[in-house]
């Protein structure tokens, strides 16, 4: 029991810091560049993504184990995962609209866009590759979401400061954002020796 808890905790910490989805694995770069202009919206986007990621981890683990592996249908993996994610996002959108209109308004357009966030499909595909069990998968999904939120909120903070900076004309917009991300990735390399499983 203690041993299991230790593994789960290590998976969580390593997904948030060491193998950060955005800065180390390059998953979810599109929202990272697109929705990181303001801290507030970046945080909402991060929360919505974390929510969907945790649910996706649980749903795709169940489908993979009890349908795809059980009936030997590995070639349907991509098609079925993308359908699950698209319907899950739709379901979450409907649920939030009914239960909490305030939150729904805050998230707005970002909810439907989550379907095409490659971090979600990447997460779903990484779980069978890593061979996690159900609990570890859910924690992995949660950790990936929190790591995503951390990176996108930090980036938004930097970009808010950058508004007042004197950036050369040709580097304005995307180029300077990418270079900033590179510096952040370098900083996150400092975590790489933190955990070894």
């Amino acid at each position: 029991m203690v041993e299991e808890f230790r593994v789960v905790l290590l998976v969580f910490l390593s997904t948030v810091l060491v193998n950060n989805f955005i800065l180390v694995k390059f998953l979810g770069i599109c929202p990272f560049l697109g929705v990181s202009k303001q801290v507030e919206t970046a945080f909402s986007m991060g929360l919505a993504t974390t929510f969907v990621m945790t649910l996706t981890a649980a749903a795709t683990w169940l489908i993979n184990t009890y349908i795809l592996v059980a009936f030997n249908l590995p070639f349907l993996r991509y098609v079925s995962f993308i359908i699950v994610i698209a319907s899950l996002v739709q379901f979450v959108e409907m649920f939030i609209r009914k239960s909490s209109p305030v939150l729904y308004k805050a998230l707005g357009i970002f909810l439907p866009l989550i379907t095409t966030n490659c971090a979600i499909l990447g997460l779903a595909l990484l779980i069978p590759l890593n061979g996690y069990n159900f609990i570890t998968s859910v924690v992995f999904g949660l950790g990936a979401g929190i790591g995503f939120t951390l990176a996108i909120v930090l980036m938004a903070g930097l970009r808010e400061k950058l508004e007042f900076g004197d950036v050369p004309e040709v580097l304005k917009g995307v180029p300077i954002t990418l270079i900033l991300a590179g510096l952040m990735a370098m900083a996150f390399m400092g975590f790489s020796g933190l955990i070894s499983i």
């Binding site: 390059f26 180029p175 990418l178 270079i179 590179g182 390399m189």
Partner: peptide, 10 residues
Amino acid sequence: LPAGAFISLG
């Protein structure tokens, strides 16, 4: 490494 990817694309 990842950092080089971001910087060179930028």
